[in-house]
Amino acid sequence: MKNVKNRHWFFIDLLCFLAGDLVDSSSLSSTTSLQSIDTAVGNQVVLPCSWKRQLGQAPSPCHIQWTNPADTTVFELRGEEKWQAEEFEGRVEVPMDGLWSGDCSLIIRDVQIGDTGRYESFMVVDGARSKKTRVFIQSVKLSVFDHKNHMSHRPGESLVLDLYTRHSMRVVFQGRNSSEWSDLWMRNDRNSHRLEKHQEKEQLTIKNLQSSDDGTYKVLDEHGLAVSTVQLSVEEKSTPLKFHFSGDQVPTGAAAKHSGSSLLALSVLVASFQILRLV
């Protein structure tokens, strides 16, 4: 019986040892508060990260890694060497000047709808038997949303559509009383007499608006995801009815009395006409 108990505790100790040895950064991240950041397409965001609490002093060399929940590396920096995922090429960076002082924040420029998701940061340090160990630092949830606008213009005016990002590839249009979407503009299109892409800014101008331009405009990225949606109303704006007096001044004295008498007579005539119609 004593041998059975000893074997029992031996297996418990063994399982605890294995569990402790297998605990990695992903399980630690689930117990850490998740910070959320919301932004719009085309903006720049900073995903916070500070390694000082977990490590105390900087490892040499500094080896920082940012991944997504599938453990796919988004950005990695080891000393002077760096690597970034293809879809983030040229858009992500961890500034070296702040890394040694504890700031391992990831900067993402020109954010896209597809960047939405959770990001986790790790410092890679030397472990036992010269093995590399990943120390979990921070988990951040990033939400990227599209732009939505309502605009109103008169016929003949111009509509300036913000494309927001160089990843905007198409503009599609749906008329007010239509269920069909049609291609209005593609990034490689040449300027026309009505459509003009700004040479430097991410803007598309639609000139000489007509009533048929009334409807919905969508800017789409290379994956067909909406960057922005604009509801446009093209309508004539009514002008209030005004009475104009001849001359530059408001009539006074006898002229004012004559004008008042004329208006009174006109009112009586209108009222009499309405009464005759009822009879």
Rank of each mutant, 00 (worst) to 15 (best):
residue 2 K to Y: 08
residue 4 V to I: 15
residue 8 H to I: 08
residue 8 H to V: 09
residue 8 H to S: 10
residue 10 F to R: 05
residue 10 F to A: 04
residue 11 F to K: 12
residue 14 L to R: 09
residue 16 C to Y: 04
residue 19 A to M: 07
residue 26 S to I: 05
residue 30 S to L: 03
residue 31 T to K: 12
residue 37 I to K: 13
residue 38 D to H: 14
residue 38 D to E: 10
residue 39 T to K: 09
residue 41 V to I: 09
residue 42 G to W: 06
residue 45 V to H: 02
residue 45 V to D: 03
residue 47 L to V: 00
residue 47 L to P: 02
residue 48 P to L: 11
residue 53 R to D: 03
residue 54 Q to V: 01
residue 55 L to S: 07
residue 59 P to A: 13
residue 65 Q to V: 15
residue 66 W to Q: 02
residue 66 W to M: 07
residue 67 T to G: 06
residue 70 A to Y: 01
residue 75 F to S: 11
residue 78 R to L: 13
residue 80 E to R: 09
residue 82 K to N: 11
residue 83 W to S: 03
residue 86 E to V: 00
residue 86 E to K: 11
residue 89 E to A: 07
residue 96 M to E: 06
residue 97 D to L: 04
residue 98 G to D: 02
residue 102 G to F: 09
residue 102 G to H: 04
residue 107 I to W: 04
residue 108 I to H: 08
residue 108 I to M: 03
residue 111 V to T: 06
residue 112 Q to M: 13
residue 112 Q to L: 13
residue 112 Q to F: 06
residue 113 I to G: 00
residue 114 G to T: 01
residue 115 D to S: 02
residue 115 D to N: 15
residue 117 G to H: 03
residue 118 R to D: 08
residue 118 R to K: 07
residue 119 Y to E: 15
residue 120 E to T: 10
residue 121 S to L: 00
residue 123 M to T: 00
residue 124 V to D: 07
residue 129 R to A: 14
residue 131 K to R: 14
residue 131 K to S: 09
residue 132 K to N: 01
residue 132 K to Y: 01
residue 138 Q to F: 00
residue 139 S to D: 04
residue 144 V to Y: 00
residue 147 H to M: 05
residue 150 H to C: 01
residue 151 M to A: 15
residue 152 S to C: 11
residue 152 S to V: 10
residue 155 P to Q: 05
residue 155 P to T: 01
residue 157 E to M: 06
residue 157 E to R: 08
residue 159 L to N: 05
residue 160 V to H: 01
residue 166 R to L: 02
residue 166 R to E: 08
residue 167 H to T: 15
residue 170 R to D: 09
residue 173 F to G: 11
residue 179 S to C: 00
residue 180 E to Y: 03
residue 184 L to V: 08
residue 188 N to F: 01
residue 189 D to K: 06
residue 189 D to R: 06
residue 192 S to I: 09
residue 192 S to V: 11
residue 194 R to G: 03
residue 197 K to G: 05
residue 197 K to M: 14
residue 200 E to Y: 14
residue 201 K to H: 08
residue 204 L to V: 14
residue 206 I to G: 11
residue 206 I to P: 14
residue 210 Q to P: 01
residue 212 S to A: 12
residue 214 D to M: 07
residue 215 G to N: 11
residue 216 T to F: 04
residue 217 Y to A: 04
residue 217 Y to V: 10
residue 217 Y to I: 12
residue 219 V to M: 06
residue 224 G to E: 08
residue 230 V to E: 05
residue 236 E to R: 13
residue 237 K to G: 02
residue 242 K to H: 11
residue 242 K to Y: 05
residue 244 H to A: 07
residue 245 F to D: 08
residue 247 G to E: 00
residue 249 Q to T: 10
residue 251 P to N: 00
residue 255 A to R: 05
residue 258 H to T: 11
residue 260 G to E: 01
residue 260 G to N: 06
residue 261 S to W: 13
residue 261 S to G: 01
residue 264 L to V: 12
residue 264 L to E: 04
residue 265 A to P: 03
residue 268 V to M: 09
residue 268 V to D: 08
residue 269 L to H: 01
residue 270 V to W: 05
residue 275 I to K: 09
residue 276 L to F: 05
residue 278 L to D: 10
residue 279 V to Q: 08
residue 279 V to R: 07
